[in-house]
Amino acid sequence: MEKSILGYKCTKCAQVHYPNRTLCRKCGHNEFTTLPLPKSGKLLTFTHLYTLPADFEVTSIGLGIVELDGGTRITGQLEIEKPEIGMKVRGDVKMVRNDGYNNYYGMVFYRA
């Protein structure tokens, strides 16, 4: 099955949160349902990082903040040659980090 990142939708006011919260930021309610977040969106800002934590095997990575379709925002890695603010991107859930003990999965974005 295709992997997704889960958003947390408040059962009272319908606000979708990512990451999760114990109390809703909009209304203070404490119950949420999960839903797979959309994978398309637009790039809000980005950087290319050249000083990585020691457990990364690459020497640099792209990072960005994306506003997904529907308005939820997420931070992810970028695999985009020349990113631009406002460009359309499409994400995939992939392994983004291995710290020697665990594999961590998250969103990697590509040019849409």
Partner: peptide, 12 residues
């Protein structure tokens, strides 16, 4: 988990 550090937040 993405490798986000303080310098990368400052960059964005």
């Amino acid at each position: 988990i993405y490798g986000v550090t303080l310098p990368s937040l400052a960059g964005m």
